[in-house]
Design a protein around this nucleic acid. Structure first.
Lengths: 199, 199
DNA sequence: TCCCGCATGTGAGCAATGTCAACATCTGAG
DNA sequence: CTCAGATGTTGACATTGCTCACATGCGGGA
């Protein structure tokens, strides 16, 4: 919503960025269906073929959006762990993780959706790995005796919890009143998987 | 692959079922992108407009496919818990759960994908709830003191683990060699969340 | 300063898709 | 036997992703 003045000159100046921004907006408003090359071009005030100077196909555009999403995501969980003592970092991050999913459900889903081709696009892969890594580090600290397993388990837990909440699959729990539940569950997970001696 | 003889008579006989079956095949082979109304009609040996006698739109068709998916899914996890003593049921189901996701990645993803409209389609909702319920029951038994929380946690765990494996986000672990890891992690989860007195 | 190459944007056009309305055909209930 | 409703067909429309040939203009070397 920040840079959306329709351009007048022939060359846009920074179309690529403008397209990704517009795509992000479009996605947040209308879901994956609403995200189309032509509509994007329209929003950029540019012809239908122009985007193809910056993205090989629709998939490439979507990968860029997903990468941007992971950047936002990383920022969110890193901010959450910043002002918190080490032992509580995992809990804080888990909370931030789930809240991100609830705040941007369509973006979150896109980031983990089917034929993204996350294995081919290098930039996307790096963005995703960075976010994963940050969480994994905090999770591993929860159980120094088996850090690898702890990381995977914790990570799976937050991811799965997010999905369940998005599906409104938890009876009587919706995005609105999810916060207490999130807090309780992440604490529970942290406690159970925490170093036994410190419990 | 079973009922795919091209029909000859004017009325197909059981087009609806044929369409869902074809859609399932198409999905398993080619992903969501390959799943189109017209292609479906072609496979059914029927005109492009015919499917609209059975499904309001593409979304309705997809919901039906997802519902079929949940049925398959329920069958898989129920079979897993059948021949196993009660205390080991959760572990067995968790394993089956993850293996289903790995065996039918595209179907699994569709079942949990974005704009499915799981909240509107009654049949889909019932199918999904049935599967969820079955797992939740076994999970709740793991911790009689807090069955609700235990169910959600366990459930989130398997779901998240599945997604991570599908993303090949776990370094060095791919669908091929995932089995030992799955077993180890589900056992670990069961142990940690199991009744403390029986540990 | 001029000029020209290359990145960037345009326009028309193609094949394919989702969906609809008007018409055809079959089938089962009365 | 008949005829109403369910099911299938034909043809059309708007829209989409994408490509190709051409237009434009910015920036660096003469």
């Amino acid at each position: 919503m920040s840079t959306s003045e329709p351009h007048d000159r022939y060359h846009h100046g920074d179309l690529r960025r403008a397209l990704v921004e517009a795509a992000l907006e479009l996605l947040l408003e209308g879901g994956t269906e609403a995200l189309g090359m032509r509509e994007l071009a329209r929003r950029g005030g540019v012809s239908a073929a122009a985007p193809y100077r910056h993205f090989r196909d629709k998939q490439a555009l979507i990968q860029a959006v997903a990468a941007a999403g992971f950047a936002l995501f990383l920022e969110a969980i890193d901010k959450a762990k910043a002002d918190v003592p080490a032992e509580e970092q995992f809990g804080a991050m888990a909370e931030a993780y789930v809240q991100f999913a609830l705040r941007y459900p369509r973006l979150y889903r896109l980031m983990f959706s089917s034929e993204l081709g996350k294995f081919e696009d290098k930039e996307l892969r790096r963005a995703a790995d960075a976010a994963y890594e940050s969480l994994a580090v905090a999770a591993a600290r929860q159980d120094p005796e088996a850090p690898g397993e702890a990381a995977i388990s914790a990570w799976a837990f937050v991811h799965g919890l997010s999905m369940l909440l998005l599906d409104e699959q938890l009876l009587g729990v919706s995005a609105a009143n999810a916060e207490p539940l999130i807090r309780k569950l992440t604490r529970r997970q942290a406690r159970r998987f925490g170093n036994p001696r410190s419990a």
